[in-house]
Measured scan of single mutants.
Amino acid sequence: SFNTVDEWLEAIKMGQYKESFANAGFTSFDVVSQMMMEDILRVGVTLAGHQKKILNSIQVMRAQMN
């Protein structure tokens, strides 16, 4: 498990989005775990492969939080 959203993004090789997530207010796992595709688009993730990777990881995160 990760301590910060930045660490999580690095771990899934999506570190290039750290600033975008932070600027959009997605700075805690409570918020990130609620993200939908529209949120991912809003933070500027436009590549389908990256969207899928982030969404898949969020689903895993949700499962671990319950």
Results as ranks from 00 to 15, higher is better:
Q16A: 09
T4K: 06
E10Y: 06
E38Y: 07
K13T: 11
S20T: 08
K13L: 13
N23L: 14
F21E: 01
D6K: 05
E7D: 13
V32R: 00
G15N: 06
S20G: 15
M14H: 02
V43H: 01
M14L: 10
G44Y: 02
V5M: 03
I58A: 03
V5P: 04
K52P: 01
T27H: 09
K53Q: 14
M61T: 03
D30N: 12
S28D: 12
K53I: 15
D39C: 03
F2H: 08
Q34Y: 07
A63L: 10
A22K: 14
L9A: 01
N66Y: 04
A24D: 04
M37G: 05
S1W: 14
K52R: 11
V45M: 03
A24L: 10
W8R: 00
G44K: 03
N23G: 08
T46P: 04
I58V: 07
T4D: 09
A11N: 11
D39F: 02
E7R: 06
T46C: 08
Q64V: 09
Y17A: 00
M37N: 06
K18T: 07
F29A: 03
A63R: 06
F21R: 00
I54M: 06
D30H: 13
I12D: 02
I58Y: 00
I40W: 02
I54V: 04
W8M: 02
V31N: 09
N66D: 14
D39Y: 03
A24N: 13
T4A: 07
L47V: 13
M36C: 09
M36H: 14
L47E: 14
K13E: 15
D39G: 02
N56L: 14
A22R: 15
T46H: 12
E7S: 09
N3Y: 12
G25P: 01
S1M: 14
S28T: 14
K18H: 04
A22S: 12
D30Y: 13
G25F: 04
Q59I: 12
K18A: 12
F29P: 04
D6E: 12
I40G: 00
L47Y: 10
F2W: 15
T27M: 07
N3H: 13
R62E: 06
N3P: 09
N3I: 13
M14G: 02
M36S: 15
M37Q: 10
N66V: 13
R62I: 12
I54K: 01
I12Y: 03
Q64S: 11
H50S: 04
M65D: 07
Q16R: 10
W8C: 02
N56Y: 15
A63G: 11
A63I: 09
M14K: 02
A11I: 08
D6R: 05
D6L: 04
T27G: 06
V60Q: 14
G25A: 04
I40T: 03
G15D: 09
W8V: 00
M36P: 03
A22N: 08
E19G: 09
K13V: 07
Y17S: 02
L41S: 07
L55I: 09
V32F: 02
G44T: 02
R42C: 07
I12W: 03
L47G: 07
V43Y: 02
R62N: 14
V31G: 06
W8F: 04
V5I: 10
D39I: 02
G49F: 10
F2Y: 12
Q16Y: 06
L41P: 02
A48P: 14
N3R: 12
T27S: 10
S28G: 08
T4V: 05
V43G: 06
V45G: 01
L9P: 00
V31R: 14
V31D: 08
N66L: 07
M35I: 05
G44P: 06
N66T: 12
F2L: 10
L41A: 11
G44A: 03
I12H: 04
V45H: 00
Q16F: 06
N56V: 09
G25S: 04
M37A: 11
I58C: 04
M37K: 09
I54E: 00
F21Q: 01
R42M: 11
S57I: 06
D39K: 02
S28Q: 06
L55Y: 12
V45E: 01
N23W: 07
I58K: 00
K52C: 10
M37C: 09
S33F: 13
S20I: 08
I40K: 00
R42F: 11
K53V: 15
V60P: 04
T4P: 06
K18M: 06
Q51R: 10
S28M: 05
Q34W: 05
A11T: 13
Q51S: 06
M61F: 06
V45Q: 01
Q64D: 09
T46Q: 11
I12S: 04
V32N: 00
I54Q: 00
A24Q: 08
Q34M: 11
V31Y: 07
L9E: 02
A11L: 07
N56I: 12
Q34K: 12
A11S: 15
E38I: 09
T46M: 10
V60K: 09
Q64L: 11
M36A: 12
M37W: 12
F2P: 07
V32I: 10
L47C: 10
H50Y: 03
R62Y: 09
E10N: 08
R62K: 15
M35F: 04
S57G: 08
S20D: 14
K18W: 08
L47H: 15
Q16P: 04
N3E: 13
V43P: 00
V45P: 01
K52W: 10
I58R: 00
S1G: 13
Q59G: 09
L9H: 01
V60N: 14
K53P: 03
A22W: 10
F29D: 01
E7K: 07
I54L: 13
F26R: 03
Y17N: 01
R42E: 09
Q64P: 07
Q16I: 12
